[in-house]
């Protein structure tokens, strides 16, 4: 089993963990963390492929992902704070206004 395959496998498994977490957890903040897990998995895959191909483009993509992740977290957390202010809850099951 090559290092390359190990990294890809870890990436895939991490991504799956993130997916499952997003689907299963109720705490909105933890759901966000799971999204971060997924992003990290993607980053790992990027770096791995970058190494495999001998170019740095994959690493560049990692920077972009990180920048977007930072923006996303800032927005997401402020949404959570706002929701908490209005409903005193961060349970994602309580936020069902999309239904209407």
């Amino acid at each position: 089993m090559s290092d390359f395959a190990i990294c890809l496998a870890v990436s895939a498994a991490l991504f799956t963990l993130g997916v499952v977490g997003v689907l299963v957890k109720r705490n909105a903040i933890v759901v966000f963390m799971c999204i971060e897990l997924m992003l990290n998995a993607a980053n790992l895959a990027f770096v791995t492929f970058s190494r495999q191909h001998g170019t740095v483009d994959g690493q560049i993509f990692v920077f972009f992902v990180m920048a977007i992740a930072a923006a996303e977290v800032a927005i997401g957390l402020s949404i959570i704070v706002t929701v908490f202010r209005n409903r005193a809850s961060i349970n994602v099951d309580d936020v069902t206004m999309l239904r209407r």
Partner: peptide, 14 residues
């Protein structure tokens, strides 16, 4: 399907 719970939608996407 339209539960309003984001996770349901995420599950459907998945």
């Amino acid at each position: 399907v339209q539960t309003g719970v984001v996770q349901t939608y995420a599950a459907l996407i998945l």
